[in-house]
Design a protein around this nucleic acid. Structure first.
Lengths: 109, 109
DNA sequence: GCTGATATCTTCTACATTGTAGTTTTGCTG
DNA sequence: CAGCAAAACTACAATGTAGAAGATATCAGC
Protein backbone atom coordinates (compact mmCIF):
# COMPACT_ATOMS: atom_id res chain seq x y z
CA UNK A 1 0.00 0.00 0.00
CA UNK A 2 1.08 3.56 -0.46
CA UNK A 3 2.45 4.01 2.98
CA UNK A 4 3.97 7.43 2.84
CA UNK A 5 4.51 7.44 -0.88
CA UNK A 6 1.69 9.59 -1.99
CA UNK A 7 -0.02 12.47 -0.33
CA UNK A 8 -3.71 13.21 -0.18
CA UNK A 9 -4.92 16.48 -1.62
CA UNK A 10 -5.44 18.11 1.75
CA UNK A 11 -2.15 16.84 3.08
CA UNK A 12 -0.39 18.61 0.27
CA UNK A 13 -2.10 21.85 1.07
CA UNK A 14 -1.24 21.67 4.74
CA UNK A 15 2.36 20.78 3.98
CA UNK A 16 2.66 23.71 1.63
CA UNK A 17 1.27 26.00 4.28
CA UNK A 18 4.03 24.83 6.59
CA UNK A 19 6.66 25.62 4.02
CA UNK A 20 5.21 29.08 3.53
CA UNK A 21 4.92 29.91 7.18
CA UNK A 22 8.44 28.78 7.93
CA UNK A 23 8.89 29.08 11.66
CA UNK A 24 5.52 30.48 12.43
CA UNK A 25 3.34 27.53 11.65
CA UNK A 26 0.84 26.47 14.24
CA UNK A 27 -2.86 25.64 14.14
CA UNK A 28 -4.27 29.10 13.78
CA UNK A 29 -1.75 30.50 11.31
CA UNK A 30 -1.90 27.39 9.19
CA UNK A 31 -5.61 27.71 9.01
CA UNK A 32 -5.40 31.35 8.06
CA UNK A 33 -2.81 30.70 5.40
CA UNK A 34 -5.01 28.08 3.79
CA UNK A 35 -8.02 30.35 3.91
CA UNK A 36 -6.14 33.22 2.29
CA UNK A 37 -4.13 31.33 -0.27
CA UNK A 38 -6.42 28.54 -1.24
CA UNK A 39 -9.67 30.31 -0.48
CA UNK A 40 -10.68 27.28 1.43
CA UNK A 41 -12.25 27.56 4.83
CA UNK A 42 -11.42 24.52 6.77
CA UNK A 43 -12.06 23.76 10.40
CA UNK A 44 -9.26 23.87 12.89
CA UNK A 45 -9.94 20.29 13.88
CA UNK A 46 -9.32 19.12 10.34
CA UNK A 47 -5.91 20.69 10.44
CA UNK A 48 -4.78 19.22 13.72
CA UNK A 49 -5.94 15.77 12.78
CA UNK A 50 -4.09 15.84 9.51
CA UNK A 51 -1.00 17.24 11.13
CA UNK A 52 -0.98 14.57 13.77
CA UNK A 53 -1.28 11.80 11.23
CA UNK A 54 1.51 13.22 9.16
CA UNK A 55 3.67 13.49 12.21
CA UNK A 56 3.10 9.83 12.93
CA UNK A 57 4.27 9.09 9.41
CA UNK A 58 7.35 11.24 9.85
CA UNK A 59 6.38 13.86 7.33
CA UNK A 60 6.35 16.69 9.85
CA UNK A 61 7.80 17.42 13.26
CA UNK A 62 6.49 19.58 16.04
CA UNK A 63 7.63 21.22 19.24
CA UNK A 64 5.90 23.21 21.88
CA UNK A 65 6.59 26.91 21.99
CA UNK A 66 6.74 29.16 25.02
CA UNK A 67 3.42 30.77 25.85
CA UNK A 68 3.45 34.35 24.64
CA UNK A 69 2.49 37.26 26.84
CA UNK A 70 -0.72 37.86 24.94
CA UNK A 71 -4.09 37.92 26.52
CA UNK A 72 -5.03 34.30 26.58
CA UNK A 73 -3.04 31.53 25.19
CA UNK A 74 -1.95 28.08 25.78
CA UNK A 75 1.54 27.24 24.61
CA UNK A 76 1.54 26.95 20.88
CA UNK A 77 2.54 23.84 19.12
CA UNK A 78 4.72 24.65 16.16
CA UNK A 79 5.01 22.40 13.18
CA UNK A 80 7.67 22.06 10.54
CA UNK A 81 7.97 19.92 7.49
CA UNK A 82 10.53 17.13 7.69
CA UNK A 83 12.74 15.78 4.94
CA UNK A 84 10.41 12.93 4.01
CA UNK A 85 7.61 15.48 3.83
CA UNK A 86 9.60 17.60 1.41
CA UNK A 87 10.32 14.57 -0.71
CA UNK A 88 6.70 13.48 -0.76
CA UNK A 89 5.60 16.97 -1.66
CA UNK A 90 7.97 17.12 -4.60
CA UNK A 91 6.94 13.70 -5.73
CA UNK A 92 3.28 14.60 -5.67
CA UNK A 93 3.94 17.73 -7.59
CA UNK A 94 5.88 15.81 -10.12
CA UNK A 95 3.13 13.31 -10.73
CA UNK A 96 0.47 15.92 -11.22
CA UNK A 97 2.77 17.93 -13.46
CA UNK A 98 3.35 14.98 -15.71
CA UNK A 99 -0.36 14.32 -15.92
CA UNK A 100 -1.05 17.92 -16.87
CA UNK A 101 1.84 18.14 -19.27
CA UNK A 102 0.77 19.28 -22.69
CA UNK A 103 -2.79 20.03 -21.74
CA UNK A 104 -3.44 23.71 -21.47
CA UNK A 105 -4.39 24.68 -17.96
CA UNK A 106 -7.24 25.44 -17.63
CA UNK A 107 -8.35 22.54 -19.72
CA UNK A 108 -11.47 22.88 -21.82
CA UNK A 109 -12.71 19.71 -23.42
CA UNK B 1 -19.14 19.45 3.29
CA UNK B 2 -17.19 19.61 0.09
CA UNK B 3 -19.71 17.78 -1.98
CA UNK B 4 -18.18 17.89 -5.41
CA UNK B 5 -16.14 20.98 -4.76
CA UNK B 6 -12.74 19.47 -4.27
CA UNK B 7 -11.17 16.45 -5.80
CA UNK B 8 -9.05 13.85 -4.11
CA UNK B 9 -5.52 13.33 -5.37
CA UNK B 10 -6.34 10.11 -7.16
CA UNK B 11 -9.52 11.51 -8.63
CA UNK B 12 -7.49 14.25 -10.26
CA UNK B 13 -5.15 11.74 -11.80
CA UNK B 14 -7.94 9.64 -13.21
CA UNK B 15 -9.73 12.68 -14.58
CA UNK B 16 -6.56 13.86 -16.27
CA UNK B 17 -6.11 10.45 -17.82
CA UNK B 18 -9.59 10.79 -19.30
CA UNK B 19 -8.73 14.13 -20.80
CA UNK B 20 -5.56 12.71 -22.32
CA UNK B 21 -7.18 9.63 -23.77
CA UNK B 22 -10.01 11.57 -25.31
CA UNK B 23 -12.36 9.03 -26.85
CA UNK B 24 -10.34 5.98 -26.02
CA UNK B 25 -10.71 5.95 -22.27
CA UNK B 26 -11.77 2.73 -20.65
CA UNK B 27 -10.49 0.68 -17.75
CA UNK B 28 -7.40 -0.79 -19.30
CA UNK B 29 -6.19 2.25 -21.21
CA UNK B 30 -6.78 4.51 -18.24
CA UNK B 31 -4.72 2.23 -16.11
CA UNK B 32 -1.94 2.13 -18.65
CA UNK B 33 -1.92 5.88 -19.04
CA UNK B 34 -1.53 6.35 -15.31
CA UNK B 35 1.24 3.79 -15.15
CA UNK B 36 3.17 5.42 -17.97
CA UNK B 37 2.58 9.05 -17.12
CA UNK B 38 2.53 9.02 -13.38
CA UNK B 39 4.67 5.98 -12.89
CA UNK B 40 2.07 4.70 -10.57
CA UNK B 41 0.86 1.16 -10.73
CA UNK B 42 -2.64 1.03 -9.52
CA UNK B 43 -5.08 -1.85 -9.57
CA UNK B 44 -7.84 -1.95 -12.10
CA UNK B 45 -10.40 -2.20 -9.32
CA UNK B 46 -9.24 1.08 -7.85
CA UNK B 47 -9.89 2.78 -11.16
CA UNK B 48 -13.38 1.45 -11.68
CA UNK B 49 -14.45 2.28 -8.16
CA UNK B 50 -13.22 5.84 -8.47
CA UNK B 51 -14.79 6.23 -11.87
CA UNK B 52 -18.11 4.98 -10.63
CA UNK B 53 -18.15 7.37 -7.71
CA UNK B 54 -17.30 10.28 -9.93
CA UNK B 55 -20.03 9.30 -12.30
CA UNK B 56 -22.50 9.35 -9.45
CA UNK B 57 -21.34 12.86 -8.68
CA UNK B 58 -21.72 13.92 -12.27
CA UNK B 59 -18.04 14.49 -12.92
CA UNK B 60 -17.81 11.90 -15.67
CA UNK B 61 -20.15 10.12 -18.04
CA UNK B 62 -19.92 6.69 -19.58
CA UNK B 63 -21.40 4.61 -22.38
CA UNK B 64 -20.94 1.09 -23.47
CA UNK B 65 -19.05 0.50 -26.69
CA UNK B 66 -19.56 -2.22 -29.25
CA UNK B 67 -17.42 -5.26 -28.66
CA UNK B 68 -14.45 -5.17 -31.01
CA UNK B 69 -13.40 -8.13 -33.17
CA UNK B 70 -10.33 -8.76 -31.07
CA UNK B 71 -9.48 -11.99 -29.41
CA UNK B 72 -11.36 -11.84 -26.18
CA UNK B 73 -13.40 -9.00 -25.07
CA UNK B 74 -16.44 -7.96 -23.32
CA UNK B 75 -17.98 -4.73 -24.50
CA UNK B 76 -15.91 -1.85 -23.26
CA UNK B 77 -17.26 0.87 -21.11
CA UNK B 78 -15.95 4.20 -22.25
CA UNK B 79 -15.66 7.15 -19.95
CA UNK B 80 -15.49 10.85 -20.63
CA UNK B 81 -15.08 13.83 -18.39
CA UNK B 82 -18.17 15.99 -17.98
CA UNK B 83 -18.35 19.76 -17.61
CA UNK B 84 -18.48 19.71 -13.80
CA UNK B 85 -15.44 17.45 -13.88
CA UNK B 86 -13.54 19.92 -16.02
CA UNK B 87 -14.47 22.72 -13.66
CA UNK B 88 -13.42 20.75 -10.60
CA UNK B 89 -10.14 19.85 -12.23
CA UNK B 90 -9.33 23.45 -13.00
CA UNK B 91 -10.32 24.52 -9.53
CA UNK B 92 -8.06 21.94 -7.95
CA UNK B 93 -5.20 22.97 -10.12
CA UNK B 94 -5.77 26.55 -9.21
CA UNK B 95 -5.65 25.89 -5.50
CA UNK B 96 -2.46 23.91 -5.65
CA UNK B 97 -0.89 26.50 -7.92
CA UNK B 98 -1.62 29.24 -5.49
CA UNK B 99 -0.17 27.25 -2.65
CA UNK B 100 3.01 26.61 -4.60
CA UNK B 101 3.27 30.13 -5.90
CA UNK B 102 6.61 31.67 -5.13
CA UNK B 103 8.17 28.53 -3.73
CA UNK B 104 10.61 26.98 -6.15
CA UNK B 105 9.50 23.55 -7.21
CA UNK B 106 11.11 21.34 -6.11
CA UNK B 107 11.10 22.92 -2.71
CA UNK B 108 14.08 22.45 -0.44
CA UNK B 109 13.60 23.64 3.11
C1' DG C 1 -21.25 -26.47 -35.04
C1' DC C 2 -20.06 -27.85 -30.15
C1' DT C 3 -17.17 -27.18 -26.40
C1' DG C 4 -13.79 -25.85 -23.56
C1' DA C 5 -9.52 -23.05 -23.09
C1' DT C 6 -8.32 -18.49 -22.74
C1' DA C 7 -8.24 -13.35 -23.43
C1' DT C 8 -10.29 -8.90 -22.33
C1' DC C 9 -13.14 -6.37 -19.56
C1' DT C 10 -16.33 -5.07 -15.95
C1' DT C 11 -18.64 -5.72 -11.24
C1' DC C 12 -18.78 -6.66 -6.58
C1' DT C 13 -17.03 -6.74 -1.94
C1' DA C 14 -14.24 -5.39 1.72
C1' DC C 15 -11.26 -2.72 4.22
C1' DA C 16 -7.58 1.02 5.04
C1' DT C 17 -6.59 5.83 4.81
C1' DT C 18 -7.87 10.65 4.45
C1' DG C 19 -10.94 14.48 5.03
C1' DT C 20 -13.68 17.27 8.11
C1' DA C 21 -16.45 19.19 11.78
C1' DG C 22 -17.58 20.01 16.46
C1' DT C 23 -16.90 19.67 21.24
C1' DT C 24 -14.06 19.54 25.15
C1' DT C 25 -9.97 20.53 27.72
C1' DT C 26 -5.87 23.08 28.98
C1' DG C 27 -3.47 27.11 30.29
C1' DC C 28 -2.81 31.53 30.31
C1' DT C 29 -3.77 36.80 32.02
C1' DG C 30 -6.47 40.78 33.43
C1' DC D 1 -12.93 33.84 38.29
C1' DA D 2 -14.13 35.39 33.68
C1' DG D 3 -12.77 35.05 29.38
C1' DC D 4 -9.47 34.34 25.60
C1' DA D 5 -6.30 31.52 22.75
C1' DA D 6 -5.00 27.43 21.35
C1' DA D 7 -4.65 22.38 21.37
C1' DA D 8 -6.57 17.56 21.97
C1' DC D 9 -10.31 14.33 21.45
C1' DT D 10 -14.23 12.07 19.25
C1' DA D 11 -16.89 10.61 15.60
C1' DC D 12 -18.20 9.91 11.10
C1' DA D 13 -18.12 10.63 5.92
C1' DA D 14 -15.51 10.37 1.70
C1' DT D 15 -11.59 8.52 -0.84
C1' DG D 16 -8.07 5.17 -1.98
C1' DT D 17 -7.01 0.50 -3.10
C1' DA D 18 -6.86 -4.39 -3.91
C1' DG D 19 -8.47 -8.71 -5.33
C1' DA D 20 -11.90 -12.10 -6.45
C1' DA D 21 -15.77 -13.10 -9.17
C1' DG D 22 -18.68 -12.68 -13.22
C1' DA D 23 -19.47 -11.61 -18.36
C1' DT D 24 -18.73 -12.18 -22.97
C1' DA D 25 -16.00 -12.69 -26.73
C1' DT D 26 -12.76 -15.56 -30.11
C1' DC D 27 -10.19 -19.61 -31.41
C1' DA D 28 -8.82 -24.52 -31.85
C1' DG D 29 -9.77 -28.98 -32.53
C1' DC D 30 -12.60 -32.58 -33.03
Amino acid sequence: MSRNDYLGAFEQIVLLALVRLRNNAYGVTIRREIAERAGRDVSIGAIYTTLERMERKGLVTSFRGEPTPERGGRGKRYYAIAAPGVAALNRSRDVIDRMWDGLGAPVEA
